Amino acid sequence: MGHFYVDDSVHNEAGFIIGACVYTEIDLSNEIDNIIEKHGYDKTEFEHKSGASYSKDPNKIKVREGLKQLLIHQCKLGVVVIPSDQREKLGFECIKAIKTFIVHNNLKDPNDIYFDQGHFMSRQKAQDAIDAQNFTDSSFILEQDSRVIKGIQLADLAAHVASMHFKSTLHLITKMVKSGENSGYEPDSDMELGFEMWATLRYTFFNKGTSEHAGDHTRDSMVKVEPYGLYVSELCSIELQGKARQAFADVYLGCIH
């Protein structure tokens, strides 16, 4: 059985929301609990929140890095882009996106699909939207607490990292950091913070895969993400659609260490 976990990252100042749909083939709750407990937190109380401050508690950074490794090695990711002034429609757009991701990636049923709290004001309207997509043997579990449904914490992290990358491509993040180990780049090279956070998560996207272009390293290292792992809402302006596709539709993998 597959599992989808849905959460979002809202950026009113930039005019967009990223919804993250994280897919796993197995329940990763135990692995997430182990990461939380390993760094000194109570698994029944602690939850990773990307908006929390990390500067005074380095162990939270270690939890985040542990969750990122789970994302990279055991999950696949699809992202949804909608305008920030259409927040009340995010959940409905994510329903459409998940149907798209299931179809284009040939995912097998059944699937359990978990949404974080606050995505739907009306359960009946949500159910109507689900029914309209003709899902087969999939269960939607709405309004879930991420302290209980641990996979939502992975979606929270994925939405945050994807948003930071998007803001970086929009030149809204300019802080430079060292690329570090396992980034696909020279460890001492400089890159923007938004891209540094993105450098490993990019391998997680649902995608079509690479094509062979003899002698063209750049084209051989590109993967097509849309529509396999990118859903750009029709609610977006033409400008926002273009920027979203520039950021996510084709992803350069570079060297994988």
Rank of each mutant, 00 (worst) to 15 (best):
M1D: 06
F4I: 10
Y5Q: 15
V6F: 15
N12R: 09
A14R: 06
G15N: 07
F16S: 01
I17W: 04
Y23I: 01
T24D: 12
E25R: 15
L28T: 05
S29V: 08
I32T: 07
I35K: 06
I35W: 01
K38P: 11
K38L: 10
F46Y: 15
E47S: 14
H48A: 12
Y54C: 01
S55M: 13
G66A: 03
G66E: 01
L67E: 07
Q69P: 00
Q69N: 09
L71P: 12
Q74A: 13
C75D: 04
G78R: 12
G78C: 07
V79N: 02
V81G: 00
V81T: 04
I82K: 01
I82T: 05
D85S: 08
R87C: 02
G91V: 13
F92Q: 09
A97D: 02
I98L: 06
K99M: 02
T100W: 01
T100A: 05
I102Y: 03
V103H: 07
N105P: 11
N106T: 09
D109V: 15
N111M: 08
I113E: 05
Y114P: 03
F115H: 13
M121T: 13
M121I: 10
Q127E: 14
Q127C: 11
D131P: 07
Q133H: 15
S138H: 12
I141M: 06
V148K: 14
K150E: 02
K150F: 03
G151C: 05
Q153I: 11
L157G: 08
A159W: 01
H160R: 07
S163T: 10
H171F: 09
Y185K: 07
E186K: 15
E186I: 14
D190I: 01
E196D: 09
T200H: 14
L201A: 08
Y203H: 11
S211G: 04
G215P: 01
D216I: 05
H217V: 14
T218I: 15
S221D: 03
M222N: 03
G229F: 00
V232Y: 03
V232L: 06
I238G: 03
L240M: 02
L240A: 02
Q241L: 02
A247D: 00
F248V: 09
I256F: 10
H257I: 14
